[in-house]
Computed example of a mutant assay.
Amino acid sequence: MVAQGFTVDLNKPLVFQVGHLGESYQEWVHQPIVSKEGPRFFGSDFWEFLTRTEWWVIPLVWLPVVCWFVSKSIVMGHTLPQITLMVVTGIGVWTLLEYTLHRFLFHIKTKSYWGNTMHYLLHGCHHKHPMDGLRLVFPPAATAVLCFPFYNLFKLISTPSTAPALFGGGLLGYVMYDVTHYYLHHGQPTSEVPKNLKKYHLNHHFRIQNKGFGITSSLWDKVFGTLPTSMPAEKSR
């Protein structure tokens, strides 16, 4: 691919190449290469290893953490119905965060060298190589760093006894999101709801990339008017 006189060599590590595309980066990154063989990101084997994560690592690492946070609110005296409500609320908060991050951060327009480079690492690589199974979920080390500000946010907007269960619910929502995202790319659903959700998400990748930002649900796309017009609302669950 040639852009602004620069050629991206797909046979070499990509991360420090894509920044040179400048304003042409947006066009390049949204021309997907449909292959299960992922590209090499870095020349360093150590940094390359950190970019690859099996999908099952996400529930293995984070579900025990979810249980620990929820148990903290139980120990502080909350009843099962209260805990259930807090966890469901946390999941709901996550779905809005999922939509917001995907729409406004993951699809931010960049053209500078470091802007393109960071966008490629964050989300651009997924649009360029959407079937790369080892880069579909977020590496746990990066998630752990992000957990600190989000937990403090929950503590700020709630009470000491409800914050853990709310955060646990939000973290559970994240786990559901990541494993669902993997399944939408590599699973073969047979029932109507997951089949429509897979169609909805792949429509975002291969047809209308500036609409359909929900992954686990099209709810917020309906609320904020980013539902793809080519897909009827009742078929986009």
Results as ranks from 00 to 15, higher is better:
residue 53 T to L: 00
residue 53 T to G: 01
residue 54 E to Q: 11
residue 54 E to W: 10
residue 55 W to F: 14
residue 56 W to T: 07
residue 56 W to Q: 10
residue 56 W to V: 09
residue 58 I to D: 02
residue 58 I to S: 03
residue 58 I to L: 05
residue 59 P to N: 00
residue 59 P to W: 07
residue 59 P to A: 04
residue 59 P to C: 00
residue 60 L to K: 11
residue 61 V to L: 07
residue 61 V to K: 05
residue 62 W to V: 05
residue 62 W to R: 06
residue 62 W to A: 07
residue 62 W to L: 13
residue 62 W to T: 06
residue 63 L to Q: 07
residue 64 P to L: 12
residue 64 P to E: 08
residue 64 P to K: 03
residue 64 P to D: 08
residue 65 V to L: 11
residue 65 V to F: 09
residue 66 V to P: 03
residue 66 V to S: 02
residue 66 V to M: 06
residue 67 C to F: 15
residue 68 W to T: 10
residue 68 W to H: 14
residue 68 W to M: 13
residue 68 W to A: 14
residue 69 F to D: 01
residue 69 F to E: 00
residue 70 V to H: 03
residue 70 V to K: 03
residue 70 V to P: 02
residue 71 S to E: 12
residue 71 S to F: 10
residue 71 S to D: 14
residue 71 S to P: 05
residue 71 S to C: 10
residue 71 S to W: 14
residue 72 K to L: 15
residue 72 K to D: 10
residue 72 K to S: 09
residue 72 K to T: 11
residue 73 S to V: 07
residue 73 S to D: 04
residue 73 S to T: 14
residue 73 S to E: 04
residue 75 V to H: 10
residue 75 V to T: 13
residue 75 V to W: 10
residue 76 M to N: 08
residue 76 M to I: 08
residue 76 M to F: 12
residue 76 M to G: 07
residue 76 M to W: 12
residue 77 G to H: 08
residue 78 H to F: 05
residue 78 H to A: 04
residue 78 H to K: 10
residue 79 T to A: 09
residue 79 T to P: 06
residue 79 T to C: 01
residue 79 T to R: 00
residue 80 L to K: 06
residue 82 Q to F: 05
residue 82 Q to P: 04
residue 83 I to D: 01
residue 83 I to G: 05
residue 83 I to R: 03
residue 83 I to C: 02
residue 83 I to Q: 05
residue 83 I to K: 02
residue 84 T to S: 15
residue 84 T to L: 14
residue 84 T to W: 00
residue 85 L to H: 10
residue 85 L to T: 04
residue 85 L to I: 12
residue 86 M to N: 14
residue 86 M to L: 15
residue 86 M to A: 14
residue 87 V to C: 05
residue 87 V to P: 00
residue 88 V to D: 00
residue 88 V to Y: 06
residue 88 V to R: 04
residue 89 T to Y: 09
residue 89 T to R: 09
residue 89 T to G: 13
residue 90 G to P: 00
residue 90 G to K: 02
residue 90 G to I: 03
residue 91 I to V: 09
residue 91 I to G: 02
residue 91 I to E: 07
residue 91 I to H: 04
residue 91 I to C: 11
residue 91 I to K: 04
residue 92 G to Y: 02
residue 93 V to G: 02
residue 93 V to L: 08
residue 94 W to A: 06
residue 94 W to F: 14
residue 95 T to R: 12
residue 96 L to G: 06
residue 96 L to K: 09
residue 96 L to R: 07
residue 96 L to V: 11
residue 97 L to I: 15
residue 97 L to T: 10
residue 97 L to F: 15
residue 98 E to G: 08
residue 98 E to A: 12
residue 99 Y to V: 05
residue 100 T to H: 11
residue 100 T to R: 09
residue 100 T to Y: 14
residue 101 L to E: 11
residue 101 L to Q: 11
residue 101 L to M: 15
residue 102 H to W: 02
